[in-house]
Amino acid sequence: MAKVRLSAAAWGLSAVAAGTLVVGCSVSVNTGHAKPKILKDKLGDTVATRLAATTGQPKPDVTCPEDLVGEAGTTTRCTLTTGDGSTLGVTVTVTSVDGDNVNFHIKADETATPAAN
């Protein structure tokens, strides 16, 4: 099945809206680990799913460089990559931890970085 990809400009505009809207959203992920954390692949997938749901756009390609440790205030920066190679940063911040549930906010940057030529 072919994936529909938005241009950097379209995602940039969507991300601005997402950044505004997603800031107020919390996501709970049950990690099932003794020390709560969200594995980087699961985190990228969860962030992509939330951005798609918030913007009404297809699920983007989001990668995160590290696992997110479940401790309030912990942050990581993930990267949304568009079909043309442009990127958009996404900040993920843990807001609270309840047992194995890690709650976090996501906020997309306002502008994309163009693909290298």
Score class of each variant (00 low, 15 high):
residue 1 M to R: 10
residue 1 M to A: 14
residue 1 M to G: 12
residue 2 A to N: 02
residue 4 V to Q: 06
residue 4 V to M: 00
residue 5 R to M: 06
residue 5 R to G: 09
residue 5 R to W: 15
residue 6 L to V: 01
residue 7 S to I: 09
residue 9 A to H: 05
residue 9 A to P: 00
residue 10 A to R: 10
residue 11 W to A: 04
residue 15 A to N: 14
residue 15 A to V: 09
residue 15 A to C: 15
residue 16 V to K: 14
residue 18 A to W: 08
residue 21 L to D: 08
residue 22 V to K: 08
residue 22 V to M: 14
residue 25 C to K: 13
residue 26 S to R: 15
residue 26 S to T: 15
residue 28 S to E: 15
residue 29 V to P: 06
residue 31 T to I: 09
residue 31 T to R: 05
residue 32 G to A: 08
residue 32 G to F: 06
residue 32 G to W: 05
residue 35 K to I: 08
residue 36 P to T: 07
residue 36 P to L: 09
residue 37 K to Q: 14
residue 42 K to F: 03
residue 43 L to K: 08
residue 43 L to H: 11
residue 43 L to S: 07
residue 44 G to V: 03
residue 44 G to N: 10
residue 46 T to G: 01
residue 46 T to D: 12
residue 47 V to M: 07
residue 48 A to Y: 05
residue 48 A to M: 07
residue 49 T to D: 13
residue 49 T to A: 13
residue 49 T to R: 13
residue 49 T to F: 02
residue 50 R to K: 13
residue 50 R to M: 12
residue 51 L to W: 07
residue 51 L to Y: 10
residue 53 A to K: 03
residue 55 T to M: 05
residue 56 G to P: 00
residue 57 Q to I: 09
residue 57 Q to P: 00
residue 58 P to M: 06
residue 58 P to H: 01
residue 59 K to I: 13
residue 60 P to M: 08
residue 60 P to R: 05
residue 61 D to P: 00
residue 61 D to C: 06
residue 62 V to S: 03
residue 63 T to E: 11
residue 65 P to V: 04
residue 66 E to G: 11
residue 66 E to I: 05
residue 66 E to C: 12
residue 68 L to H: 04
residue 70 G to I: 02
residue 71 E to H: 03
residue 72 A to D: 00
residue 75 T to A: 03
residue 75 T to D: 04
residue 75 T to W: 03
residue 75 T to N: 04
residue 76 T to V: 14
residue 76 T to N: 07
residue 77 R to G: 07
residue 78 C to P: 02
residue 78 C to Q: 05
residue 79 T to I: 15
residue 81 T to M: 11
residue 82 T to R: 04
residue 82 T to D: 13
residue 82 T to W: 13
residue 83 G to S: 13
residue 84 D to C: 02
residue 84 D to E: 15
residue 84 D to V: 04
residue 85 G to E: 11
residue 85 G to T: 12
residue 86 S to L: 11
residue 87 T to P: 10
residue 88 L to D: 10
residue 90 V to P: 01
residue 92 V to L: 08
residue 93 T to Y: 07
residue 93 T to R: 15
residue 94 V to S: 01
residue 96 S to T: 12
residue 97 V to Q: 06
residue 97 V to Y: 07
residue 99 G to F: 00
residue 99 G to V: 10
residue 100 D to K: 05
residue 100 D to P: 03
residue 101 N to R: 14
residue 101 N to Y: 12
residue 101 N to C: 05
residue 103 N to M: 11
residue 103 N to G: 06
residue 103 N to W: 02
residue 104 F to M: 07
residue 104 F to T: 02
residue 105 H to D: 09
residue 107 K to Y: 02
residue 107 K to V: 12
residue 108 A to S: 13
residue 110 E to C: 03
residue 110 E to N: 13
residue 111 T to M: 00
residue 113 T to I: 12
residue 114 P to H: 08
residue 116 A to F: 10
residue 117 N to T: 03
